[in-house]
Amino acid sequence: MIISRQKDLQVLFEGLSPDDSFFVIGCGKCAKKLRVGGQKEVEEVFWRLVDRGFRAVGWYVISTACSINSWEEIASEKPEIDDATAFLVMACGNGVSVINRVSGMKAYPLLDTTSIGGVCDDYMLHEQCAACADCNIHLYHGICPYAQCPKGLQNGPCGGSIDGVCEIGSERSCVWAQIYEEAEKSENLEVFTEFHPPKDHSKKVRREGLIEKI
């Protein structure tokens, strides 16, 4: 799941042109689940646009904004989309990018994408994966320090980890304290005794900008 949060709409609206006709697009997957891009939120933005005097021509929640086979299909569901000159997209950056690519229209993001995470028992789990293209999460008892430690440390905590709390804020627990807890439970402290070499960042960089056939 891609974790996103809504931008400050007040600030965003100030940057919009009154000459445009806006169509609001949501996403039925992650954004809907996180309640930042489902029908309720999309409608709310639509009516706020209307209240602010913008020309708002319609709204639609695409089933998966980052996976669109045919733009024509979407356009046929909502013919008023053709009257729009700009889209306001309530999806992650992937969704905005794909919509922009398939529609060829100007698309403004209404969300800020923050991480790859998950939802568990109604709690949002941030930063579960850093998409590093070099996964070794099994070494860390299923908790990725590269994603969850603000410094991405792979060889144990920094000196700022005190009583299980991260140095950047008392509300954040140190991911290494969680890893330690799991390591103790499984009576295997190898992750703290083995040296982990620097990460190979070339694995990630090699895929940037590539478009591959599935």
Partner: peptide, 12 residues
């Protein structure tokens, strides 16, 4: 305990 283990690794 974590800092002690980390110290050991720094020395190694």
């Amino acid at each position: 305990k974590m800092q002690l283990l980390r110290l050991k690794r720094k020395v190694s």
